[in-house]
Amino acid sequence: MRDFSTDHHWLSINTATLRRQSGQEVALDLIMDQCAARGVRAISPWRDQVAAVGIDKVARQLKALDIELSGYCRGGFYPAADAAGLRAALDDNRRAIDEAKTLNAPCLVLVVGALPGALQGKPAYKDITRARGEVRDGIAVSLEYARSVGMPLAIEPLHPMQAAERACINTLEQALDLCDELDPLPTGEYGQGQLAGAPASLGVALDVYHCWWDPKLQQQIVRAGQGSASRLLAYHVCDWLAPTRDLLNDRGMMGDGVVELRKLRGWVEDAGYAGYSEVEIFSTLDWWQRSGEDTLATCIERHRSVV
């Protein structure tokens, strides 16, 4: 396993972690400057933050600061109430792929969606099997375009608590089943072959907040790393607080919760992952109330000491 104790070379900051500082919304251009000042060499920005600054300005600033991306957030949300909604989702995902390409992201992260309207408390339907079918069909269409421009797609399975509102793909096994169906690798089926080499066209973003509890996690990480190409496209870290005060916006700083972070990173690195550990923390009651300097300094220290 790589030694992170002496530097933060492999630390990336998901910009949601710093989108609110001292209780106030902060623009992406300032966040990039803050990261560069602390020697953070990678970020994963969100589309709304990019749009607020302007994608061309963001691209120029990334180049000037010598910052690269560990991923781009986000595509997905495929299910819809009707054909027009399904088409709109496909169009939006095509735009997200183009944005990711413009910013030279290594992958576009997909939060796939679930029951349409559930986030607003008015689900258009309750058939989660239908939603999963619409996710499958939507990814299949997006993947065809993504391949044509060379942009890998990374399915992010979300904790089952978010199965109704945000993602009906909830385990790494489900995500990898979709990958194998839609993007079969030419060699190296599950349980065979060598550790993967180049990234697959369709893979996974493994977020420890969503997957740490899964009794099949180690087995499925091994599966993701076997074959002719790696399915492990992104690795997100934070911690699960006990008790958790809010199931969406109370993620813990690494080391403050119950996740065995070193063990999990050992599993993903044994499976061939050698990319960034991307800190993604939504924290209304804690870290979003602190200064950006405090949050960044703590991310760096915990990356070295517990990740």
Rank of each mutant, 00 (worst) to 15 (best):
R19N: 09
L202K: 14
K122V: 04
K263W: 07
A64C: 05
N249S: 06
D7V: 00
R290D: 06
A205S: 15
K63P: 01
V204A: 04
V50T: 10
R20P: 05
A163L: 06
G150I: 11
L172W: 11
F4A: 08
G54T: 04
V222C: 14
A89Q: 04
I221F: 12
L18W: 10
H8E: 02
P215W: 08
A36D: 01
K216A: 12
E173D: 09
N170H: 03
V111D: 04
L182E: 13
M1Q: 11
V307D: 14
G272S: 03
D180I: 01
D286W: 08
T129M: 05
G85Y: 07
S305H: 06
L195N: 10
E189W: 14
I300M: 10
G75A: 00
V50H: 02
A83Y: 02
L119R: 14
R245F: 07
C179A: 05
D137V: 11
H236N: 05
L264Q: 12
T129N: 13
V58A: 00
L241Q: 01
R166A: 07
V50Y: 07
D3Q: 04
P160V: 02
P123M: 00
A146E: 04
M151C: 01
P152E: 04
A105V: 08
L103I: 07
D91S: 05
D33R: 13
D82S: 12
G225T: 05
L296P: 03
R41P: 07
H9C: 04
A131C: 12
V109P: 13
S22M: 05
R130K: 15
L11H: 01
A36T: 02
P123W: 00
V259E: 10
I300G: 00
L202E: 12
N93C: 06
W240T: 01
V112L: 03
D250Y: 08
D256S: 15
K122H: 08
L86F: 11
R223K: 13
K63R: 13
D177T: 01
M1L: 14
S230Q: 14
Q194R: 15
E278T: 12
T6H: 12
P106F: 13
A36V: 00
H9N: 05
Y145L: 08
P186G: 03
F77K: 02
I128M: 15
G272T: 02
G193L: 07
G133C: 03
R302I: 00
A198S: 14
E165S: 09
R262G: 11
H236C: 02
V268K: 11
R231W: 09
L206S: 08
Q162Y: 14
